[in-house]
Design a protein around this nucleic acid. Structure first.
Lengths: 162, 162
DNA sequence: CTAGATTCGATGACATGTCAACGAAACCTC
DNA sequence: GAGGTTTCGTTGACATGTCATCGAATCTAG
């Protein structure tokens, strides 16, 4: 009915820039991570989230939620990481359905040796290119969008409308 | 040797926000696109880039470069889109190796009917949440990062070092 | 308690992306 | 213009992600 509000020049510039940056940054960070540490970004994120907990252990469900991954995806991925000795699974004491993902010593070693290089890459290709004001703006704006999208939305809602 | 410069609080907030926004925005835009138009984001991007050319036709190589996709990936994807009748391939007159990707009427129909809803979603979940200053800042900052990463870098370089 | 609904994680089938290799064509450069 | 190199697009093998389904365990009403 009413005409589409297309993006004006500035909006288009921001939107295209965002998507292009997203892609290039991903390629570069993934490339360096693989080359320097033998980890994929997915591996890194799993290990990173695990290592941020006091015990290096998390319920699978909890980890999936934090990462905004499906449990299926995480389960598959953990199987592969387990085969490489980076994590193990343990039974959950208080919920017999559950399983607990545990960082192995090798996994901790992997993330600890990968982290400095990865942070350096993030700085080199993003953070250090921005002014303090831009960093704050990026923080503010991204968090606003995250809140809007319901940052906690655990799982793909099946809002069966109509 | 020298200590890692970890991200300070503001930098960390920006970086985490960026990654979380990235993920949530992707999920939501992909979800709406699939539901409303039966297209994946990959489909949409291919059709969009094609439809931006005067004739709706592009050399495969050229399209792959614009999208920052590998030719292999694009070739596989085109095979699937071709089966759905969204694009076709034609021989290239001046280069017998090449192939030209051509938007079919159905493909043009698909992108034209999908675009308004997609743009609306981009507005709803991102653009319209930002102030004009933030939009400009995002445009500036992303383009700086893209330039830094060598926006033109056509293909994964095989810099064989040492 | 207990029947039904929900959550948890695993799994298999399948869609998609990556990687290495290939044949054909085009491009040097001598 | 012939030999070696590079580019182009395709292909097959494989890695990864998604989706539907499952069995088991837990939760919730009554």
């Amino acid at each position: 009915m009413d005409a589409t509000r297309w993006l004006d020049e500035r909006e288009d510039r921001a939107w295209r820039g965002y998507r292009r940056m997203r892609r290039l940054l991903d390629l570069e960070l993934a490339r360096e991570l693989t080359q320097d540490a033998g980890l994929s970004e997915a591996d890194y994120d799993v290990l990173s989230d695990l290592s941020e907990t006091p015990q290096g252990r998390l319920r699978l469900r909890e980890l999936a939620d934090r990462m905004l991954w499906s449990r299926s995806r995480l389960s598959h991925h953990l199987t592969r990481m387990q085969q490489r000795g980076l994590v193990t699974r343990e039974e959950c004491a208080d919920d017999a359905r559950g399983s607990i993902v545990v960082l192995t010593p090798a996994g901790r070693q992997a993330i600890e040796s990968a982290a400095p290089g990865h942070v350096a890459a993030v700085r080199r290709h993003l953070i250090d290119l921005l002014t303090p004001a831009e960093i704050d703006a990026l923080g503010a704006l991204t968090h606003r969008v995250v809140d809007h999208l319901g940052g906690r939305a655990p799982h793909p809602r099946h809002d069966l409308e109509i």
